Amino acid sequence: MSNRPSAKTKAIRKMGQGTGADYKPYITTSEFNSQGTTSVIKDWKTGRAVHCLSQGEMYWYYILRWDDTNVDVREQYPLDYTETVNIANEMGFPPPREIMTTDMLATKKDGTEVAYSVKADKQLSKRQMQLLCIEKQYWLNQGTECQLVFKSEMNTILASNIRLVTEFYDAALVFDVVSAIKHKIAIKEIEFDMGFKPIENSDLMKLLEVKNE
C-alpha cells in the first residue's frame, strides 16, 4: 500500500463516518499502489463517489443499490478495533493488526442493517477464514445480520445492466431515444428484465415499440 493515512488521520478526516451522500469510506482506492480491479463509481441516487476495492465489490454495490429496500449502502465500513481484538482473543485467533472493515453495510427501510463480506471465490486462506469469523461475530454482537457473498455466485449480467441504465438516472444526461429509455428504466418508470441478458439497443427499441402500442 501507499499514501495510506494513519488511523488518527482517518479519524480527523471522519473517514468511516456519515450516512448517505455524506459518508466517507474508511479505505479508499488511492491507498493502493496498483489500481488493478479497484474502481470509484458514482452512486446514482446521491452522487457520492463509492470506493470499490474489487470487481466483486463493484458488482455487489450495484445490485444492493438497485434494490429499493436498501436506503443506504456504505462501503469499507470500519469495525471497533478493541472489540475485534477481544473477539479474536476469545476465539483463540491472532488479533487483527489494524482496524478491520466490512465491505458493504446496507441499511434497510425499516432501519435494520445487513453487513456483507465480498470475496472473489471460495478459495480462502486460513487467515481469511479467521478474519471472517471475527467479522461475523462482531456483527452478531451488534444484533446485525452478516452475510458472505462470492463474486462467482453473483448475477454479473444484472450488475452490468444496472450500471448501463443508471448512467442516465439524471434526466439532464438524456440525449437521444435510447438514453431516454435507459433513464426510464433507471427511475423504474419502465420495467425491464435486467438479469437475463446484456442490454442491447435493439432490446430497448422493441421495448419502446411495445409501450407505444
Rank of each mutant, 00 (worst) to 15 (best):
Y26F: 15
E31Y: 14
K126I: 12
T46A: 12
K14W: 11
V114D: 03
L158A: 07
R65P: 05
K206H: 11
I12F: 13
H51K: 01
S152H: 02
F93V: 03
Y23D: 04
A172I: 07
T46Y: 11
I134F: 10
F192Q: 04
D103M: 10
P5R: 08
F196C: 10
L53P: 09
V85Q: 08
Y81K: 08
P78L: 03
Q123E: 15
M129S: 10
F168Y: 15
F150C: 05
H183Y: 07
G111S: 09
M129W: 06
E113A: 09
W60A: 05
D67H: 08
Y26R: 10
A7T: 01
Q55G: 14
I199T: 04
T69Q: 15
T82C: 05
E145P: 03
D193F: 09
A186F: 00
P198Q: 03
S2W: 12
V85K: 08
A21D: 09
K188S: 08
D121T: 14
T9K: 13
Y62M: 02
E75M: 13
K24T: 03
N161A: 00
N3D: 09
A159F: 04
Q128M: 13
E200K: 15
E31S: 03
H51P: 01
Y62L: 01
M100F: 04
A159R: 03
S54P: 06
L53R: 13
W66H: 14
I162C: 02
W44N: 02
E90D: 14
M91T: 00
K151S: 10
M104F: 11
L131W: 11
T19D: 15
V165Y: 01
S6N: 07
P95V: 06
T101W: 08
K122V: 07
S160C: 00
D170T: 08
K182Q: 14
P198V: 02
K14C: 11
K45G: 02
E167T: 07
W60G: 02
D22L: 11
K42A: 07
E31G: 00
L208P: 02
T19C: 12
Y26K: 11
A180V: 01
L79F: 04
R48I: 07
S152L: 05
N86E: 13
